[in-house]
Amino acid sequence: MTLILRVSGRVLREEARVSGRRKEEAFLAKIIVVTSGKGGVGKTTTAAAFSAGLALRGHKTVVIDFDVGLRNLDLVMGCERRVVFDFINVINGDAKLNQALIKDKRNDNLFIFPTSQTRDKEALKREGVDRVLAELKESFDYIICDSPAGIEHGAITALYFADCAIIVTNPEVSSVRDSDRIIGILNSKSRRAERGETPVSVSLLLTRYAPDRVTKGEMLTVDDVKEILSIPLLGVIPESESVLRASNTGTPVVFDGESPAGHAYLDAVARFLGEQRELRFLKPDRRGLFRLIFGRA
């Protein structure tokens, strides 16, 4: 059994297992990796929403695209036409940090660090990444790392320096299994693990949750997933068409006040910052049905 007390920037790992309570430790989380193992589950969407959410709460935040070669984050953040230098240029010393960072037009606290589309993931040299992250730590409250899918070099580099990990999982068996795998890797291959420090604080974000399909038994329930992964739950993001609209217009979904997914992300950010928030959007949306009946979109 895992008790979730609180997942926050000042992280309390608090797990009561059969063996009894585990020692409580607090540390200041700066580097947050958004990871999943499986592809296409919503990591980039989450990295964008979460960083924007932290910025909206007044924290100076930078979101880095570790998905070298694919480069999706700048599109989702809507700054693709302002990219001059990228993460790899800075790692290689070809550009300065402030030449590559892009300031968000909607929020002064938010910065985007795009990646290269022409290079491959091998270009992520660990020492270089270490140096860049150390420099970012000086001036940012939070550094969000958008990991590529998989469990190879790119994904390992993205999680290696993390203090916290947000495990993005969809309510289906293969996604849960890959998340489980990546949690094992965080526990063994992260820098914190290698150095024997306080382990990376890992929490679960269940995304693309479709309550009607869960009710029909086509998808796993929140409890199923929590039970298998046995890590604290940070939030549940409903499946919502507003997400696609948001990424197509280059707007993190938290900027859409109408979007249930946006609200669910803001709740998750609040929980991350230590607040208590009830889980929402776990039941099928009756209003949607209503609108359908009355023929309104």
Binding site: S19, I151, R177, D178, D180, R181, I183, G184, N187
Partner: peptide, 9 residues
């Protein structure tokens, strides 16, 4: 072993 044994381990 006190931690979950996860997929792939």
């Amino acid at each position: 072993v006190t931690e979950p044994v996860r997929s792939g381990m």
